[in-house]
Computed example of a mutant assay.
Amino acid sequence: MIVFALQLLIAHVIGDFVCQPNAWVLDKIAKGHKSRYLYIHLAVHIVALAVLLQMDYWPVLLIIGGSHGLIDVAKLRLMNHVNHRWLFVWDQLAHLTVIAATVLAYYPVQINWTEVYSTHLLLLVLALLMLTSVVSVVMKQVMSRWSLDEDDATDSLAEAGKYIGILERLFVFGFIILDQWQAIGLLIAAKSVFRFSDLSRAKDRKLTEYILIGTLLSFGLSIVIGLAYQYAGAYWMK
């Protein structure tokens, strides 16, 4: 089952990413289903599947190839009506859903709901929600007591600080789980290098202090959540 799933995923990656030049994408967007590159693109998928599956599973070639063509045509028709980022996400989810359904059709599996709702997995979900959503709100509330005159929302990407914070907290959490504490120090150092220009042009200590408070608070909460996850997991696994 795992080998079969990997073969389908590799074929998808080869067809959708490795062997699809940007010129093909632009031509498909301009001409829609009339673009010859749409059919070349589908042929690449089918050839990759045939090679990886070693000419076995002929129905899979028809299922994956046919569904891929329908999904791509639907994507092209929606191109001017749906945000392109969301369209890309839904397009990939549709392809992966077909792949998953194909794998399950050939290799049915029974879902062990006891494992799905296990204490360890629920703790992980809670920790990830805390790191992404809860801490973001906490950070916003704490940092809102200070305002900097030089702050201008037009000078930065929309909500960039929020997403940078989420990513750094996820990295810290991952490093704690992997017991790689030295990597957290490297992450702090890397962030300091990137923010050096902000600190060097500050007229006073306000910006420096603001950045330090935000960084230390974000890293501190990440470490607390990471350690709490580890200790809680170890306690319930006894």
Rank of each mutant, 00 (worst) to 15 (best):
D72N: 08
M130C: 07
V98I: 14
T97C: 07
V116Q: 10
K75W: 03
F88H: 04
L121G: 02
W113I: 09
K75P: 06
V98E: 00
L87C: 01
H84I: 08
V109E: 14
W113V: 09
T132Y: 12
Y117C: 11
A100W: 03
L87V: 01
S118P: 07
L96Y: 15
S133F: 14
Q110L: 13
V98N: 03
N112M: 08
L121K: 15
A127V: 05
V116A: 10
T114C: 05
E115L: 07
S118D: 14
V73N: 06
L87A: 02
L123Q: 07
H95R: 05
L128G: 04
V103D: 03
H84C: 01
V82H: 08
T119E: 09
T97G: 11
W113S: 04
V125N: 08
V73D: 13
L78A: 13
D91T: 03
H95F: 02
R77G: 08
D91K: 05
L131I: 10
H81T: 13
S118E: 07
H81L: 08
L131A: 03
M79C: 03
L76Q: 05
V109W: 09
T114D: 13
W113T: 10
H84V: 08
M79S: 10
L78H: 02
V82E: 08
V125H: 14
R85N: 09
A101P: 00
V134A: 15
L129G: 10
Y107V: 07
V82P: 07
L93A: 15
N112F: 04
L93T: 05
A127S: 13
F88G: 05
T119A: 12
T132C: 09
S118L: 08
L124G: 08
H95A: 01
Q92E: 05
V82Y: 13
L121W: 11
T114N: 14
Y106D: 03
A105I: 02
S133M: 09
M79T: 07
H84G: 00
N80K: 09
M79P: 00
M130R: 05
P108L: 12
T114F: 04
I71D: 02
K75C: 03
V82I: 14
T102R: 06
L126F: 12
L96M: 11
F88L: 15
L122N: 12
H84S: 10
A101R: 00
L124R: 12
I111D: 02
M130V: 09
V89R: 08
L129T: 10
A127L: 07
V135T: 10
A74C: 13
L78T: 01
Y106I: 06
Y107F: 14
L78R: 05
L124K: 15
T132S: 10
L121S: 10
L123H: 09
N80P: 01
A100Q: 00
Y107C: 05
L129A: 11
A101Y: 01
L93E: 02
S133E: 12
T102I: 01
F88W: 13
L104T: 11
R85G: 02
H120C: 07
D91Y: 06
